[in-house]
Design a protein around this nucleic acid. Sequence first.
RNA 1: GGUCUCGUGGCCGAGCGGCUAGGCAGAGGUCUGCAAAACCUUUUACGGCGGUUCGAAUCCGCCCGAGACCUCCA
Length: 495
Amino acid sequence: MQSQLRIQNSLTKKKEVFEPLNPPNVGMYVCGPTVYSEVHLGNVRTFLCFDVIYRYLQYLGYKVRYVRNITDVGHLVDDADDGEDKIGKKAKLENLEPMEVVQKYTNNFHSVMHQFNILDPDIEPSATGHIVEQIDAIKKLIDCGMAYQTNGSVYFDVEKYNKDSHYGILSGRVLEDLISGTRDLDAQDDKRSPYDFALWKKAAGGHIMRWNSPWGQGFPGWHLECSVMSTKYLGETFDIHGGGMDLKFPHHECEIAQSKTFNGVDPVKYWIHSNMLTVNGQKMSKSLGNSFLPHELFEGTHELLDQAYSPMTVRFFMLQSHYASTLDFSNDALKAAAKGYKKLMNGLKIAKSLTYQKEDVEVNEKAVQQINQIMENCFHAMNDDFNTALAIGHLFNLLKKINSISTNNLKTAELGREVFDKMIRFYQEFVEDVLGLEEEKLNNSEGILDILMKLYSEAKDHKNYEKVDEIRASLKGQGIVLKDMKNKIDWAYEE
RNA sequence: GGUCUCGUGGCCGAGCGGCUAGGCAGAGGUCUGCAAAACCUUUUACGGCGGUUCGAAUCCGCCCGAGACCUCCA
């Protein structure tokens, strides 16, 4: 009846029918944030993409175990041998304990995710919580000869790995080409090859993040945590691995190399990469200085913004493009999205309020056929590599039918109870559960109260006590009491 | 330099061999005390030049333009 879900697999570069390894279970791992600063909007886009994927898989009935990690150690500022850890650097800068930095920005991350109505993962493991597992993994890699120790650090031997496997399989690279294209080969003395990557880094004198290991005090390399934690919670091979495009190389490439070496199997069946958010055609990134923080957006305080935009407006805006396309951020586009979002929400309000009216009218076959077709189209769009943009397009067509009912241009009885119920349920579930769009309660209740108090005061002036009592009673029903004071009228929450 | 994307109407953004995407904006109409909302109708397209095909925005080639990755990045 329904079309099959198909996913564009970054590994095979093909759109493939989704067949979980152990249906109805699905294991999904997404690379989470490095918690050394506030998440910006570009980061949000990635987590939003996978939120919708998570939601849709569940909607289809899969039992998903969604793992999204927190990187709280090992992510270096650059690739030099004396490279500083991002968390460590920030801790020094802000004069905090590293774990205070981690906590602060993890909290920030969570609150931003919640503002955008992004669901929590089922497991959110952190790198520092898995030092033991990482050390074990390194031992294995050394034992099988794929890693070597130099000066208290351990590196993965990429050239050796490349002899039997293809390092670059995901990003379409060839190691020889990479190496010949590398400029300064001398800066990294400890490594045998510039493309070897750290599994364990020796903690230099001033380094404030350090753990004991068989190789002395140090800390784990960035790529290792994902291999270790995905294996631990999802198994040696799991269904979906996601992340931003920019993690494809080298991060995910390294993950594959590590996991494949110590598990002996390909770790992931479907790789999914979301594309970048751009500003004036350029990737949004901290280093370019063109990134927006979520709160700057909600408050409209960023210099590139000419007004504030709500979280749901932004969510809707992002869902109007496909996750694999770049999306350019602009005021005009956001304004259009704000209106579109409200239109969809007004529809939701109407859908929830409509009830079936039994009437003696003939079934409108054409309308019934159209409605069934539209719902099928929505599934079809989502099944085609989670095409939310197309699905939303179809949803607006369904909305026209709902609005027609509300303006009495179409009678519920013309659809029959079954189709009517199905349509209403479908619209609600698709908007709220799949797309994760929710109503944003107006925050201008005080403004409305002012208007009511003015009417109240006018009614009193005209001695229209019937109206006065009515206003007072209806506000009381909302938990608000009006207070007649000597010189003014005020309100308070009912105690 | 290497690898790879993308260029769609006023704006955003799907589509990827034939069939109206959709949203915003514009025009006309219905409804309305006036408006708003809603509904109906509607104007603007596929970077350029060739090629394949009965037929191309969609496939191929070249050119122009923009961007990403190759160093940290969602």
